[in-house]
Every structure is written in C-alpha cells, then in structure tokens.
C-alpha cells in the first residue's frame, strides 16, 4: 500500500475496553505515525497493557474505533498480527526449546520458510549479542538475556511495528542500557516502536512522544521535553529530613518555590531556580540532612499528573 506511507500506523478514536463493570480503558484517542517511537506511561492499572493488547489484536475492542495499518482488528487481526512484533510483559519463551529453535519456530508461525527462519535467527541473535547462546536452553539464561531473546524473536517477521509492554521491568541497569541501545537502533532502521513503561528515564530515552495514562484516561500528551516544560518547573530541590519528620518540617517551607510535594522519604520543591530556593530554605533556618538540586524530569510530571500525595 504505497499511498499509505504517510497515513498513521495506529489510529485510536474513543477507544474503550471494559471487563464486565470494570473500565480498563476509558475512551482514549491516540495517533501514531510511521517511524515514531511512542510511549504509554502510567502507574500500574492505568490501562496501558489493555490498550497494548487491543493494538496487538489479542483483545477485542469494546467501543470506539481502532485501526492499525489502516486495518480493523475485528476483521483483519490475522493480517495485522503478521506485520507486527510483540514483546509481552512476561517473556513467553518456549522452555522446551533452545534459543535458536524458539526463533525458528516463531518464524514458522508466520509461514516463513525454515531456511529463511534460520538465516534471520542467526542475524537477530547477532543483533542482540547472543550468538554464543544460540544452542542454549532458555532456563539457564539471565533475565536480561531472556528479554533480548524475546525481542529478537519478535523481530523474526521483520515487523513494521513493534509493541513492547514494559520492556525493561525487572532488569539490572546494564541490561536496560543494552536493551535501550538495541531499541534505538531499531528505531533508526525505521521500525515504529510503541511501548509502555513506568520508568521515566526509559520514556525520556526512547520516546519521541508519549501519553500519560491514569485510570484508563489520557491525562497528558506530548514529547518528554514538552511535558516537562508544561507540567513542571525547570528545577527540583530535593530535601531529606530525619525519618518521619518530613510533614512537620515541610510546613516551615510555605511559599518556597512554585509547588511542594512531600514524599515519605523526601520533600520535593519545584522551582524555576533551585539554588535560590535552597538559599531560602537555609535562610529560614531549616537544616535538611541533605539537599540536591536537579533538573526536573518526566518523573515529576508523572507524579504531578497521576497525583501522589500532592500539596499545592
């Protein structure tokens, strides 16, 4: 479909998913153009995975309109799935097969000839740096390796669209960085990435654009930079007081910065000038155990939008 090259890869209009009385996704509108890296960000239970499952054509749409590659999942699910790769939240690798056989079998599910599956498996294992594990069973692999096998496997059909549900949850920092690097390369090759995460750094690293979801609704949309600029002042001052005294100390700080948030372990003060805010804290005679000024991040946006113990 050459005329479609500019049409959005995914269009969701007023998408709703209900399980009985429970509303998992509550009328969201999303559009993902080809080549973009798009993120769904939100706390657990925000409706990210339900949305991903609908896009992955493994969960019927309750209401609204969903098109992927311009096709309707209700009638063309098989065709859509054949052009898509899926990295589920939990690795679903076949424990009874070797790494290489996992890849080959998966290719066979897409009706790819066996010889071609072998060729691609070799290439993809190289891509995720697991060539030396090709003949290994799944069980002895580390979490990070399993994740990489899952990603390699999801690429066996050379998908135009790759869905990643919490791709790096539970991995150590090194493994995460290896994965990010690989995903970034895929993006450079023109693969459209759609991912969910609750890691802010991941969203900042990988997403061109993202939506923040909460309770089934989209509460913000934009690039990571835009969201930070719009929803959070430029800097954040983090203060630590002796355990259990945060609430009490925080009241000394009325009027410092633009906004204040008291977390169990620290007090966050959002301000355009963090150093000035810190000077004001000291001037008032408040003596935190430690103080840190940093740039505001997506995490701050996230906390603000999904509302965790906000004190405005």
């Amino acid at each position: 479909m050459p005329t479609d090259s500019n049409a959005p890869l995914i269009t969701a209009e007023h998408l709703v998913k209900r399980f009985g009385d429970f509303v998992a996704v509550d009328g969201i509108d999303v559009e993902v153009p080809r080549g973009e890296s798009f993120g769904f960000l939100g706390p657990n239970g925000a409706g990210k995975s339900s949305t991903m499952r609908m896009i992955g054509c493994v969960s019927p749409v309750t209401e609204g309109r969903l098109r992927i590659f311009g096709l309707d999942p209700a009638t063309d699910g098989k065709q859509i799935r054949s052009r898509m790769g899926v990295v589920p939240q939990m690795d679903q690798l076949d424990e009874q097969l070797t790494v290489e056989d996992n890849m080959i079998l998966y290719g066979r599910y897409f009706d790819i000839p066996r010889a071609e599956c072998k060729r691609r498996a070799k290439e993809l294992l190289e891509f995720v740096q697991l060539t030396d594990r090709a003949k290994s069973k799944i069980e002895p692999l580390s979490g990070g390796m399993k994740r990489r096998v899952t990603i390699a496997r999801s690429l066996i059909n050379e998908p135009e669209l790759l869905l990643l549900d919490e791709p790096t949850t539970g991995l150590d920092p090194q493994a995460r960085h290896v994965l990010w690097d690989r995903l970034y390369r895929l993006k450079q090759r023109g693969v459209t990435l759609v991912l969910t995460t609750h890691y802010m750094d991941e969203a900042e690293q990988l997403c061109d654009r993202l939506v923040v979801m909460d309770q089934g609704k989209i509460v913000a949309m934009g690039s990571p930079r835009e969201l930070i600029e719009k929803h959070s002042p430029r800097e954040v001052l983090e203060l630590r007081y002796p355990a259990g005294t945060n609430d009490e100390r925080a009241s000394d700080l009325d009027g410092v910065g633009n906004r204040r948030e008291v977390l169990p372990d620290r007090v966050l003060i959002y301000a355009d000038d963090g150093e000035a805010a810190l000077a004001e804290v000291h001037r008032r005679g408040s003596r935190p155990e430690s103080a840190l000024v940093r740039r505001s991040s997506l995490e701050d946006v996230f906390l603000r939008l999904t509302g965790r113990s906000l004190v405005d």
């Binding site: 992955g56 799935r81 054949s82 679903q92 690798l93 076949d94 424990e95 599910y109």
Partner: peptide, 14 residues
C-alpha cells in the same frame, strides 16, 4: 506455565 499459546496467539495463529 509455558505460555506457549499466548505466544502463538500474538502471531497470525488463531
């Protein structure tokens, strides 16, 4: 446990 069918259903298999 092995989630063989979940994995298969994400492909064109039904």
């Amino acid at each position: 446990y092995d989630k063989v069918y979940d994995a298969a259903l994400a492909t064109p298999l039904t």
